[in-house]
Design a protein around this nucleic acid. Structure first.
Lengths: 229, 229
DNA sequence: ACCTGAACACCGTTCAAGT
DNA sequence: ACCTGAACACCGTTCAAGT
């Protein structure tokens, strides 16, 4: 029932599968059609093999998910190493985090996968190790570094969980009158914000600007605590 | 194959199912045995009916998940309404967020469910509406409120995504020597932190203290921006 | 050493049929 | 109006068997 040739068949004669090739194929699938479309059968198809063959190279599906999280984290480390590392801790840290965010934006499924991992990927550990080193050089105590890691949380890796999409509350299906009545504060806030910033590319709020605002709030706050001790 | 009587059978003769009772049963299962054990068949068992009967009261499993997210959000709203509402915006907001966190700690599966919802629960919208109102009364511009919501993110509802559990990197399986070599900064930070705070109930870091530290960092930062405009 | 076919247990979900 | 039995499509995973 394979309608199209497997994505790798064109590259030549059958080359044996490896864990790396399986993981790269998994990333390709998640990028193209979303993480929910990543099944072992679909993955087998992508590499031109039966699903059962995958178990020779990975332990189980969770192993695939651990693997693609690590692949993304590696990509983040590479991007972070490319940012200018001279300057004060805040500039460098800020640059590295925004580089991480750029990678995350290319893999929108990655946050969800990171969140479900029970063990931390080695590449993520290396990313945090470097972050700790930067803060240390910047004059942070180990205690404050520890608090900083918690305060930044996933933001250190370039993403945040948006629990609440204001637009969802104001969808076309919910009439404006009911909104004003049930959620008056939200309604008045949105009424004022909605028409601001026509240059925003992301609808009524510019996620990039919001991310940077929150990041600076935290970095400035940490700097203040650092110098006050 | 039902080994034990359904949890509700003891309460008397068969009472017709309702959406509310289904959702409460689902919360009970998630609390007791984890969200991954919540299947439609298991849920049917819990309410003393066949899995197929559930579809008369809920549209599909996603509807159940939407529903239990809303149940938890209602619980948060009730807890938040119980906190003292007199005082400056920061005190009240802080109190409400910590009340939300207390609810979340009773439902450890809730963050994961919130994160996978595509539409925002009505109760969550009401929670945020109240938060917006508090900030407005506290003298925030709508623009700054909007930024504050993004900056707080899920923290406004009492939880944060911990991507990185430092203990995971120092598990018993990884020997200390390798850790020091591969992750030197992390290793030295942990060496110093690990012996601090013997009163901490949560292992080597006290999640509650870290949560409050980060929360105050944000609230103080927002207050500073508010007054500087 | 690497891959596959057949099979199993377990999902969510549909639908005609029961009371 | 409410519930159920049988069935379907689709998972992850195992394992004996192929080359």
């Amino acid at each position: 029932m394979q309608m199209t040739a497997p994505a790798e068949a064109v590259t030549g004669p059958r080359v044996p599968l490896t864990r790396q090739r399986v993981l790269q194929a998994a990333v390709r699938i998640a990028d193209k059609t979303g993480i929910e479309s990543l099944t072992m059968r679909r993955l087998g198809e992508e590499v031109g093999a039966e699903a059962m063959s995958l178990y020779y190279h990975v332990a189980k599906k969770d192993d695939v998910l651990d693997g693609i999280a690590d692949v993304v984290a590696e990509e983040i480390n590479e991007a972070a190493e490319r940012v200018e590392s001279t300057g004060d801790w805040k500039t460098v840290t800020r640059g590295r985090i925004l580089a991480a965010r750029a990678v995350m934006l290319r893999h929108p499924w990655a946050p969800a996968v990171f969140e479900t991992r029970t063990t931390t990927s080695p590449a993520v550990l290396r990313y945090y190790d470097r972050l700790v080193g930067l803060l240390r050089e910047g004059g942070f105590s180990n205690d404050l570094i520890h608090r900083a890691l918690h305060a930044l949380g996933s933001r250190a890796l370039g993403f945040t969980q948006e629990l609440f999409d204001p637009e969802a509350g104001a969808g076309e299906d919910s009439d404006a009158a009911a909104l004003v009545e049930n959620l008056p504060s939200l309604a008045s806030m949105m009424a004022e914000i909605a028409h601001d910033d026509p240059t925003s590319t992301l609808g009524w709020c510019d996620a990039q600007a919001e991310f940077e605002f929150a990041l600076d709030l935290l970095l400035d706050g940490l700097d203040r605590v650092r110098t006050s001790n």
